[in-house]
């Protein structure tokens, strides 16, 4: 899952490196770090936002505990961005049946985003194939996206191939 945490660090050298250490130690993959020295808090602390991917809740809890133990003040833990990833293939007259509309309808669901689309075009008049990667906030939203894709596919006579 992808996690976003916001914390406040003391404004002394080495604090940022110290804060990032437990995150990578537990195998999480850091995606982005924003260190906002210009937005110091009244107590002189520096807000930092870190976005990282971590395998499971248990590891996340261990990371958070270690961060708190080291003196970081965590102000926000969010798991909003693309926590659940689903790969789906579509086969049929994908372009002909308005692929833009297919994507827009899935994207219109709350907490769901199509992050990648790869098309393999068939010859003229032939069927094409597409691979879609869906990112959703949680399992429930991902399931809703897959159900909607099933509906769209039935309407547009496309074959949907999902993960087992």
């Amino acid at each position: 899952m992808r996690v976003r945490i916001e914390m406040e660090l003391e404004d002394v050298p080495g604090q940022l490196v110290k804060a990032l250490e437990p995150i990578s130690k537990f195998g999480a993959n850091i995606q982005n770090v924003v260190h906002q020295r210009e937005r110091k808090t009244p107590l002189g602390r520096v807000p930092v936002t870190v976005i990282f991917d971590v395998d499971d809740r248990e590891r996340l809890d261990r990371i958070l505990k270690e961060l708190r133990d080291s003196g970081a003040r965590i102000t926000l833990v969010g798991e909003r961005e693309g926590m659940v990833k689903k790969v789906v293939l579509l086969v049929g007259h994908i372009v002909h049946t308005n692929v833009r509309d297919t994507i827009d309808r899935v994207n219109s669901l709350e907490g769901v985003r199509i992050s990648d689309l790869s098309l393999a075009m068939g010859g003229a008049g032939e069927e094409s194939a597409a691979r879609i990667i869906i990112l959703a906030d949680n399992e429930g939203r991902a399931e809703a996206a897959l159900r909607l894709l099933d509906e769209i596919a039935a309407e547009k006579k496309l074959l949907v191939i999902k993960e087992m």
Binding site: L89, V91, G92, A120, E127, S128, A129, L159, I161
Partner: peptide
């Protein structure tokens, strides 16, 4: 019947 080599490649 609708599975093509392109589909297996995308997978």
């Amino acid at each position: 019947r609708n599975v093509t080599p392109e589909v297996t490649k995308l997978a």
